[in-house]
Nucleic acid binder design. Structure first.
Length: 1157
RNA sequence: GGGCUUGUAGCUCAGGUGGUUAGAGCGCUACACUGAUAAUGUAGAGGUCCGUGGUUCGAGUCCACGCAGGCCCA
């Protein structure tokens, strides 16, 4: 007979995967899983585009497993889940790779290589590893539509981006401003953070550092500082390693929680009495402890030991809002001057160095710029000839004349000897003019400022300070942090809305949403969109030379129209060709004409690639130029998932663009209104953690601990890797990737499941069992074990469904695993084995098959989102042989693939909570009996007479009785005696029910517990009968105590929780004989197996005559022995030849088995 | 430096709303079972719940401060 069920003993999971892939491909299962649900509600998933210019790693298997799980699950649930793939193709990594390939630097672009050539190279490189990615996608079983992916460099994609930008522009959300960036005056160029991280850029240098004294203005806010102020003036001390920024100071930053002190002392340079404010922790840096007790008035100018006295302590919070006098009043703020020169709070202030007060100049520090902007502090800037606002240091690194003149005057006023006469145009903030520093009179600008401050009683301490400072990799000169032009998206305008919208998003884990992402939104600054690069989406803004006229282009049509005008005006020679490439350099050659007839040139920047990916909800469909309906159906995403490192990347850009487009496009607003979306881009998001090596280290090539995803997948198969990743820990925890863990999953879960299946297949093939959906044994006729596992299965369905619904895949996987291992294999199958191999097909046997079949089938379906290959294999093995019938009848098993089926629903009427509880007791009692047997050294094969079970309440007894047979069979005991307190043997004892008593009595707990400890047996009986008892001044209720059983004297007892079991371990002669008989059966079975006999072969047994007791045992149980061992005869012989010596533990037997035909 | 996060057995992890003796799997040791058999079951050993304080009748759990690892940002 041909086997109906594939009963392969050894499974090659990788091979199953390969075969399944073949099947999916041939039958178009993925496509069907989408088209099948045509017309059904859609579940929208957005694929975050990977960049194919790098190779995929094992962490991509993790991220994509998470994505795949929920798309598959939602498909099972009846949703249509389209998953458009995509590729991220622009940006710095691509450019860097090309530069590396070509052996050039950024500087060579436009010189050694044209932009055209360079960008062509970028376009080629972008898809360099696409094959590997496609291969990974396939092999790991990630279902995503890669036939029609969105590609961010395509013209249509860029057009959608331009449309978005134009909407923002129209709403004045797109503007040109400046931000503080690393800038090399020597090279005249801004530096990217990656250029700053080139080796050798950070150098240790010695710079002049100053602790400056800022004079506090006396007013209501600062009044508390003055009562004890020495010399009538109070100074706040701030430290800087860049004295040249002091003329641009507009605020002082303190830490709100930092402790500060006010100190009366003398200025070490001017010897004037001063009262200064400094962080308490840094006091020792400026004052020597031993001068603490010196009298202030005993000090004479020039004394080495300067006395000091701490007069007051307070926190930074008390200082916030205090006004001070401008330190170097050379240039005034252009605007908001009344808001300048204030103490503000900032989170970046520390007490590691300096004074615990940071001086801020918004034009020359990124932190300074940020906090100033947030708190409305103006910068010190001036207008240049063109009327543009510029900082006080020019692009060559030189102070503007207004400051130069003041410094020149200072040099003259204080007779500062310099290496050469200094004019107003000679004050470079660093040595960018290659002055001879070895000249003894050489003084740089920092030193000159220091001297001026010392003279004017504005410096408390000046010293050389060694620190690391970034240098330009081209010129080797110090970098300045300098305001550079950039285009921004005014995300701050919608901050509150974005914060509010974020609260409507379901984040897994929650803390990433409320914490990391939420905090980021709270501290939002405008999004700097500009990138001075070559390969990316060009900024679609054209400007006239004077910057007074500009246009933002929002579509190709608009561009063509404008070009037509330009052609007319003579700025362009011809219209754009239909296949015009929107990239640089072509787009740079487009010159448009302004309303006043001026030529307008494109702003040379590209936009941040994160805008590319954040715009994918719209641009993937070329919205709004095409596919409006598809867009409407698929906006916003129901679900997205990426690594936690995307929090400020993709998650943010999706969120920001969605919030802003909701604000600026009536069209998108209308779409949102239809679906009741407030303006989010995604509703549920999983941010998964990192994949580390097994020791918790980051994987890196240099450490050599990188796991190759392809090797891993082909060795273990995708299912096991996927299952391991999900089951081991929640996806948002970092995963310590360990092959031993994978092996364990394979053995423990997949091995067990496979074993359970092949057990089924083995006997189902023998019995010719075929599932008939129209003819199943009715529920009432099932055994209690059947009903129990069915009930467990219903609970499993409920639990797994809920876990998936709540985006908790780990909980789902663990629930399935527990079900298969603990309940299905270890209990149901083990206890039911005999039903499968005894006798002919009967209704009971059929019920057993059907039950096991259903468990396997449902397991296959529930696990299919996580382990798509094995579940498919299992499903098809179980159902292929009835497919035709199922198709004809239109029953649930008509689908050729588990991934096309409809998710099972838990059936309440097949759930039996009572039975589940009873069975749990049965398992517990068996475990207890085993433990007693163990202690008494009585093996399970030896039958025992009875179990004594103390019964605390009747419900308990009822429960046990329904599973009594199971217990008795499992532990080989003849009977259970239930013992209640009428028996006189059972002694009850009570323990306090702490959770309840705690709430009621609180601090009196100990008293009550003491009283409860004194309750007598009579008391307990009264309490049980009447439900209440007054004792020791307390009114006790029945549920104030937990009743359990005392140990039973003279019995072997085991207790766990409230369950106590006693076992009668008396071995009577009949029991002993039965034990011998069972032992004997066991030995004969072993011999049969050794001889290689088939299950149905008949034998004759001959035994060398043993002693009387054993003879009696074997004779008594002759029939039993014969049945079990398929023996036709059992005879005793005085002498046996060619017999086997058999060890019966306490004695030996000689046995001879022969086959009887 | 800031935000978030993790710390429980040798390893990987569970431990609603505080409750008496902190659990599971693997690994280890021992035993059992022997018609799922390169399978299976049972038991045992193994813990400063990262530390220190605090709140409470009671803290692995709540609070504060630390320590160590991770991520992101400066």
């Amino acid at each position: 007979m041909a086997a109906r069920y594939n009963d392969l003993k050894e499974l090659n999971f990788a091979q199953i995967a390969a075969e399944t892939l073949e099947f999916w491909k041939k039958e178009g299962i993925f496509e069907k899983s989408v088209t099948n649900r045509e017309g059904a509600p859609s579940f929208t998933f957005y694929e975050g585009p990977p960049s194919a210019n790098g190779t995929p790693g094992i962490h991509h298997v993790m991220a994509r497993t998470v994505k795949d799980i929920f798309c598959r699950y939602k498909t099972l649930q009846g949703f249509q889940v389209k998953r458009k793939g995509g590729w991220d193709t622009h940006g710095l990594p691509v450019e860097l790779q090309v530069e590396k390939q070509l052996g050039i630097t950024k500087d060579d672009i436009g010189r050694k290589i044209s932009i055209e050539e360079y960008n062509r190279k970028c376009r080629e490189t972008v898809m360099m590893y696409k094959d590997q990615w496609d291969d990974l996608t396939l092999k790991m079983g990630y279902w995503v539509d890669l036939k029609n992916p969105y590609v961010t460099y395509e013209k249509e994609y860029i057009e959608s981006l331009w449309w978005l930008l134009k909407q923002f522009y129209n709403k004045k959300l797109l503007y040109k401003g400046y931000t503080i960036q690393p800038y090399s005056p020597a090279a005249g160029t801004g530096l990217s953070s990656h250029e700053l991280n080139l080796p050798g850029c950070y150098k240790d240098v010695k710079d002049t550092s100053i602790v400056a004294q800022f004079t506090v203005k006396r007013d209501a806010k600062s009044a508390f500082l003055f009562p004890d102020a020495f010399g009538d003036k109070v100074y706040i001390m701030a430290w800087t390693t860049t004295p040249w920024t002091l003329p641009s100071n507009t605020s002082l930053v303190v830490g709100e929680k930092i402790q500060y002190v006010q100190v009366n002392t003398y200025n070490p340079y001017t010897h004037k009495p001063v009262s200064v404010v400094v962080a308490k922790d840094l006091l020792g840096k400026y004052f020597s402890e031993k001068n603490k007790d010196l009298a202030l008035d005993a000090y004479k100018a020039g004394d080495k030991a300067i006395p000091y006295q701490v007069v007051r302590a307070f926190t930074g919070k008390d200082l916030v809002g205090i006004a001070y006098e401008q330190l170097l009043p050379y240039v005034q703020p252009l605007y908001d001057a009344d808001k300048a020169f204030k103490v503000i709070a900032g989170d970046f202030v520390t007490t590691e160095d300096g004074t615990g007060v940071v001086h801020a100049s918004p034009t020359f520090g990124a932190d300074d710029f940020r906090v100033s902007k947030q708190q409305g502090i103006p910068p010190i800037t001036v207008k240049d000839e063109a009327g543009n606002e510029v900082p006080t240091v020019d692009r060559k690194g030189k102070f503007i004349d207004a400051i130069g003149q003041q410094l020149q005057a200072g040099v003259a006023r204080y007779n500062i000897k310099t290496h050469k006469p200094l004019g107003p145009a000679d004050f470079y903030v660093k040595n960018y003019t290659n002055e001879d520093e070895s000249n003894p009179d050489y003084k740089n600008t920092d030193v000159i400022i220091s001297i001026i401050l010392k003279e004017e009683n504005k410096a408390f301490k000046v010293e050389k300070y060694e620190h690391t400072y970034p240098h330009c990799w081209r010129t080797d000169k110090p970098v300045l942090y300098y305001p550079l032009d950039s285009w921004f998206i005014r995300t701050t305008a919608l901050k509150d809305k974005m914060v509010a919208l974020n609260k409507t998003i379901n984040w897994k884990p929650e803390s990433t949403g409320t914490g990391r992402f939420g905090n980021w939104l709270e501290n939002l600054v405008d999004w700097n969109l500009s990138r001075s690069r070559y390969w990316g989406t060009p900024l679609p803004i054209w400007r006239s030379k004077d910057g007074k006229e500009e246009i933002c282009i929002g579509s190709l049509e608009e561009l063509n129209n404008e070009v037509a005008k330009a052609v007319k005006a003579g700025h362009m020679a011809a219209p754009l060709s239909p296949d015009f490439d929107l990239h640089r350099p072509y787009v740079d050659d487009v010159v448009l004409v302004s309303a006043s007839g001026q030529p307008m040139y494109r702003e040379p920047d590209l936009i941040d690639v994160w805008f590319d990916s954040g715009a994918m909800p719209y641009a993937q469909w070329h919205y709004p130029f095409e596919n409006k309906e598809i867009f409407e159906k698929n906006y916003p995403a129901d679900f997205i998932a990426e690594g936690v490192d995307q929090t400020r990347g993709w998650f943010f850009t999706l969120h920001a663009i969605a919030a802003m487009i909701q604000d600026s496009s009536p069209e998108v607003q209308a779409v949102n209104k239809k679906t009741g979306n407030g303006g989010v881009a995604f509703k549920n998001v999983i941010s998964n953690g990192l994949v580390l090596d097994k020791n918790g280290n980051k994987m890196s090539k240099s450490k050599g601990n990188v796991v190759n995803p392809f090797e891993t997948l082909s060795k273990y198969g995708a299912d096991i890797v996927r299952w391991y990743m999900i089951e081991n820990a929640p996806p948002w925890d970092n995963l310590k990737f360990d092959f031993e863990g994978i092996v364990e999953v394979q053995r423990r879960f997949f091995g067990t499941l496979q074993n359970t299946y092949s057990f089924f297949a083995l006997y189902a093939n023998i019995d010719g069992f075929v599932k008939d959906e129209s003819n199943v044994v009715p529920y009432e006729k099932l055994t209690s074990l059947d009903r129990w596992i069915i009930s467990k299965l219903q609970s499993l369905i409920t639990e797994v469904t809920r876990a998936y619904e709540e985006y908790e895949p780990t909980r789902a996987a663990r629930a399935i695993q527990d079900f298969v291992n603990d309940h299905l294999s270890n209990w149901y199958v083990r206890l039911n084995r005999k039903r499968f191999w005894k006798g002919e097909m009967s209704e009971d046997k059929k019920a057993a098959y059907e039950t096991l079949y259903e468990c396997l089938l449902v397991t296959a379906q529930l696990m299919s989102p996580i382990a798509p290959f094995f579940s498919e294999w299992l499903y098809r093995n179980l159902t292929d042989n009835i497919r035709e019938v199922a198709v004809t009848n239109g029953t649930p098993l008509r689908h050729p693939s588990v991934h096309l089926t409809d998710l099972v629903q838990a059936e309440a009427n097949r759930t039996d909570a009572e039975l589940e509880k009873s069975m749990a007791y049965a398992q517990q009692i068996c475990s207890l009996v085993h433990s007693i047997r163990k202690n008494a050294r009585i093996k399970v094969r030896t039958p025992l007479q009875r179990i004594l079970l103390p019964v605390l309440d009747t419900a308990f007894a009822t429960r046990i009785k329904t599973v009594e047979e199971i217990i008795l069979a499992e532990v080989n005991v003849k009977s259970i005696d239930y013992m209640d307190d009428t028996s006189g043997v059972l002694v009850k004892k009570v323990k306090p029910n702490l959770p309840k008593l705690g709430k009621q009595y609180g601090p009196k707990m100990k008293e009550v517990a003491a009283v409860i400890a004194t309750l007598t047996a009579d008391d307990i009986r009264t309490l049980e009968k009447q439900g209440a008892l007054a004792k020791g001044g307390f009114d006790l209720a029945l549920d104030d105590v937990l009743i359990s059983s005392e140990d039973i004297p003279g019995w072997s007892v085991a207790t766990e929780g409230a369950v106590t079991v006693a076992l009668d371990i008396t071995l009577t002669e009949p029991l002993r004989r039965e034990g011998i008989a069972r032992d004997f059966v066991n030995r004969v079975q072993n011999l049969r197996k050794d001889m290689g006999l088939e299950v149905l072969d008949k034998i004759a047994i001959e035994v060398g005559k043993p002693d009387d007791a054993v003879t009696a045992a074997l004779t008594d149980f002759k029939e039993y022995i014969s049945t079990e061992t398929q023996a036709l005869t059992l005879d005793f012989r005085e002498a046996l030849v060619e017999a086997t010596e058999v060890d019966m533990d306490d004695f030996t037997l000689t046995v001879k088995i022969s086959l009887k035909k």
